[in-house]
Design a protein around this nucleic acid. Structure first.
Lengths: 218, 218
DNA sequence: CCTACCGATCGGTAGG
DNA sequence: CCTACCGATCGGTAGG
């Protein structure tokens, strides 16, 4: 029953959930070309001919590797979500039981993902471009990560660590705040992904923690 | 009978910057159809034939009213930005000189716009779909509102009302937080735009106000 | 001649 | 993997 293969590339040291290679993932030339073009021109704005040309292939060559255009997008979305999910669970495991540490680990995970894998993050918006047979799966994958954050917010609230606002509402606010990073982040900018992650853990905690009502202090 | 109403469509009472009609704007049937389709299918996913059909017109009829497909999108983007800009200036004028009141008025303006004119808010993402001759103008219009918020954050900081973090960074965070509302808001939901605006003014103030560092309170 | 369109079709491109 | 194509549809325009 035991597998003889010890070094499988998909098995990464759980402690490495914060470390990203450059590029973050090894992609088929067609996937790499499609990722660039989808982000720049959108899914519907990108032709299969452009993808094939960018990858130095012909259109039939593209269809030899992928069943259709939708499958190229779903493959990229799946890879991105698998990577975020794997790292998130490693981060939670490393964070232990402290609710605030667990929440901070998830936010850190999310922001590192959004910066190091920025193009994949932009791709999430194209989920709406999928047809009815592919969309539900990837909506579910996206929601699954959001529920991971929601679960930690509720757990921290239950232990009296966070404020008492609607956990769904605060979780939505935290996720919007962080997702925005993908819109302005530039890898060549002054701030490193790690510095931005630290800053956004602080921002996120401001949203979830209890405190004196700001409105009263006018 | 207690007050005489002067109903000029273009001139709105500056005090009415918080009140939205339903629908919020009178649109040409073609613009209304295009707005629905662009939001649902994206700019490149929508054909001029679909727009014309949705408006009960023919394609040449569409081209009689608009030079091309890009002009339809730019017209919608312009209308949305004009509306937000007009209300923002009215809101700032009504807020007076108090820095926190001015900031809160802008956030309130923004969230009311994102909820009452949600479809227009989604359209902003399609700016990237414009060609090189149309895109710069609408990137500039979007940036102009963001600079309006930035200016108020800096002013409040200068007066010692807000925390001392990088104002560009906190402004980006505030804008991301609020823009996220357009992603999940449902007009048929329990919370009204006004209640959500109140909540997000509080959220936004948490991001900009000074306070004891959260990280220390572990 | 104008306007507000129409039926039909233009040159190219979509996914396959 | 290429060359050679398809049914249909793309954004946009012809004459009447």
């Amino acid at each position: 029953m035991n597998k003889q293969r010890v070094t499988v590339p998909s098995e990464v040291d759980p402690a490495d959930w914060q470390r990203y290679e450059n590029p973050p993932l090894q992609l088929h030339p067609l996937l790499s070309a499609a990722l660039d073009l989808f982000v720049r021109l959108g899914y519907h704005g990108t032709s299969v001919r452009a993808i094939a040309a960018e990858a130095g292939m012909t259109v039939p060559g593209l269809y030899y590797n992928f069943a259709n255009k939708q499958d190229i997008l779903t493959e990229l979305l799946t890879l991105s979500n698998q990577e975020l999910t794997r790292r998130s669970h490693a981060a939670l495991a490393a964070a232990g039981r402290n609710p605030r540490a667990r929440f901070a680990a998830l936010i850190r995970c999310m922001v590192l993902h959004l910066t190091h894998m920025q193009k994949f993050a932009h791709l999430v918006r194209e989920i709406d471009s999928l047809d009815d047979t592919h969309r539900p799966k990837h909506v579910e994958l996206r929601d699954r990560f959001q529920r991971l954050v929601l679960t930690e917010v509720i757990a921290a609230q239950t232990l009296g660590e966070f404020g008492s606002g609607d956990p769904h509402e605060t979780t939505r606010a935290v996720l919007s705040l962080c997702n925005g990073v993908a819109d302005w982040f530039r890898i060549e900018g002054a701030a490193t992904p790690e510095q931005i992650a630290d800053r956004y853990v602080d921002f996120a905690l401001r949203l979830v923690l209890d405190r004196e009502s700001v409105s009263d202090r006018t």
